[in-house]
Design a binder for these strands. Structure first.
Lengths: 157, 157
DNA sequence: ATGGGTGCAAACTGTTTGCAATCTG
DNA sequence: CAGATTGCAAACAGTTTGCACCCAT
């Protein structure tokens, strides 16, 4: 899933007893318009949505609330539309859960710099493992934690 | 590292300009006494430490504060003694960072059940990737998110 | 028309921080 | 001794929740 029409989203939601709403469409739409590899926190998402709305309609009324943002993120993660990333401290980040999940992260524990890398073999391992356990996989993440070159050099820590 | 004496811990800390304290020894000691695969949140760790102290000395004074627990956990993660797990919502969990990092997690997004599994090939992939990026790896985690058998059956969500 | 979804504001939870006192090297 | 570390309590940030209203089905 790299592109999903509003109608397709609606079907996906309705099939599970959920409803399609303007807010949910906007959230997914924004994620779909994001460049590959870009991820947002709940608050960044919220801020962006509001900014967009202001641009389009000059109305101050088109707000989506932060609570709804959180509720929507959870919903979409549980349906497999989004993936939740736990990178550096605190802020969780979200991104589209693309079909080929060969997109993982390398995080510096000292400065929080985050690098992305791909490794197609991981998805297979994940799929196989989950199958053995009877799980239906929605996401598969390999995260490496360490100290980056410049932090090692700076001998900080 | 499956066992580390107080002296070894002290050296490890001193080498980096940190100091060895009773609190740090207790924290690491507790993790070393934990059965393989067991992990604790900061608050569980804190509660356990206090309970242990009470048992041993009947003194109510042997408390380690929650702040210190947090500070110690961060320190030990950054040194590579512990690994931080982000499993279900909120609570982060910690466990000893054993040399063979072939110990990963499978989490149900619905009921939060967590399964562990090993897959030795992952560590190699991680090591190789980190090396390319010039990182010094401290931890390597593959986490699979999905829906477990019983949740799928219950058709909840 | 039903019951799922939303917004708001208030409540929470886990985590962090300033500071004075205390210990380690 | 100097400087790292601690405990305490207060502050925070991000996230969740109750409730009344609204809207998709």
């Amino acid at each position: 899933m790299t592109f999903l029409s509003d109608q397709a989203l609606k079907d996906k939601l309705n099939n599970r007893g959920y409803r399609s709403t303007a807010q949910r469409q906007k959230v997914l739409g924004l994620f779909m318009s994001l460049p590959q590899g870009e991820h947002l926190s709940a608050e960044e998402l919220h801020a962006t949505l509001i900014k967009n709305d202001l641009g389009e309609t000059a109305s101050v009324e088109n707000h989506i609330s932060l609570s709804t943002v959180y509720r929507t993120l959870h919903l979409m993660v549980s349906i497999g539309l989004l993936r939740e990333l736990e990178l550096a401290e605190g802020h969780k980040h979200y991104e589209l859960n693309r079909p080929l999940r060969d997109h993982h992260h390398l995080v510096c524990l000292n400065c929080n710099q985050t690098l992305e890398f791909s490794e197609s073999s991981i998805a297979d391992i994940g799929e196989k493992t989950a199958q053995n356990a009877g799980y239906q996989v929605l996401d598969c993440q390999l995260t490496l934690y360490g100290i980056c070159t410049s932090c090692t050099a700076k001998n900080s820590i």
